[in-house]
Design a protein around this nucleic acid. Structure first.
Lengths: 225, 225
DNA sequence: AATTGAGATCTGTGATCACAAAATTATAAT
DNA sequence: ATTATAATTTTGTGATCACAGATCTCAATT
């Protein structure tokens, strides 16, 4: 029997093509930190866990490898990407270069409804911090950032930024899980203020600071995974 | 009979896995401007042109779609990505943010041999400009830039930058082909000078200017493809 | 000449099989 | 008990088939 990658996945209901549903599901699992860096996955194992045939899994995994979320090891074994100092530095550089810029582009497209959503997500994030719920912290932090970015239907920047998140999220989860939420802070307030003030530069700066603080916190833990 | 995507491809000799050979081949064709934006491709057509089975083509095309080089249209038809103003602006932003930075990172790793190669490629590029050989211009311009970037084995920045090039290269070829080489300039000299002087900031600035000039030249042609 | 529509063909997606290389387990030898 | 070796299973890759939806062909009709 093929090794099980995970279990207890919500069954497919949507009318999306199977491979897209598989891809989205795997993305969510990765972004929310459900995959441990270094763990090896198998096509048949994922297929069984998701109750689909190996074929659409193969296509999704190929995509995720292209996006750097998964890696194919030495002798063709699929693994969840591990963090290295070099990768980390480049991820930080790319995030700091692109995410503040996209925030500024997206700001004019954030309407009242989306702002409300962001405020709501941020309050849930505060709850997650104070109650020590790492899983929710990861999830709501992701939702907050992409809640801003996705206001702009960016055909280039958004997929690239998503690929950056796919790369560091597994590592993020491990580190945050070990350190606990007491080391985490919420730098999103100034971002919300900037959105309310409709000030793109201020938003870019707030996101920049948020990323920098977060990545600095992570930086000490590289190699100690 | 399936439609032929192209013809006259060098047969496979290498010992790479078939899918990687197919991927590399398609990348080169795209980067060198052999694919016309908007053209639809078919898995079976590519497979026949490359004399391989459809399976490895499928995998390669999936990768290229994930990287934005190809697109799957409205009703699942594979096409070479077309340029839009929004895409173009984001590509320019991303290139200007990442490529100068990677240049600076790579500079300390450029040895004498690589410098010699860069000088050589640049002189070939000058010949291509003066003789009006667009194809060679595209090729050597690509080789010059990646000749710098690849000095640093960057696990994150390099693949992302490659994906940026895959997205604009088909468009680049069309525009350059219509305008002719008389509108093209060679801004690589100051980059070479900066490398010789081992001055990362100067190299970053030179690459920045090179990208800016090139993208500005392209900007007027959007939508007139 | 332009339009329509039925039949044929092509295309992406998913399923299944085959296979060699790798990994795991079982067995034997010291 | 530990190591060496043989047998078995698992895994990614490639090939082939099935199929529904899209596309194309081309004659019939207006």
């Amino acid at each position: 029997m093929p090794s099980n990658a995970f279990s207890k996945i919500a069954p497919r209901q949507s009318v999306l093509p199977v491979n897209e549903w598989v891809y989205d599901t795997l993305c969510q699992l990765i972004l929310h930190g459900e995959f441990v860096p270094g763990v090896t996955l198998t096509l048949r194992g994922i297929a069984e866990s998701l109750d689909v045939s190996p074929m659409p899994v193969r296509e999704s995994v190929t995509r995720l490898i292209a996006e750097g979320a998964l890696e194919v090891s030495n002798k063709r074994r699929i693994t969840v990407s591990q963090m290295t100092q070099k990768k980390f530095d480049e991820l930080a550089l790319a995030r700091l270069s692109l995410e503040p810029a996209l925030s500024a582009l997206a700001l004019p497209l954030i309407d009242a409804e989306r702002l409300k959503l962001l405020v709501d997500v941020d309050s849930k994030l505060d709850v997650a911090i104070s109650t020590g719920n790492i899983g929710n912290y990861i999830k709501y932090n992701c939702q907050f950032h992409f809640g801003i970015y996705e206001a702009s239907p960016s055909p280039v920047l958004l997929p690239i930024i998503k690929s950056l998140w796919l790369r560091f999220s597994p590592f993020y989860r491990i580190v945050a899980g070990r350190a606990g939420t007491q080391t985490l802070d919420d730098y999103h307030e100034s971002a919300i203020d900037a959105i309310k003030a409709k000030d793109p530069d201020a938003l870019a700066k707030a996101i920049h600071k948020d990323i920098q603080e977060g990545m600095e916190m992570l930086n000490d833990s590289i190699g100690k995974q």
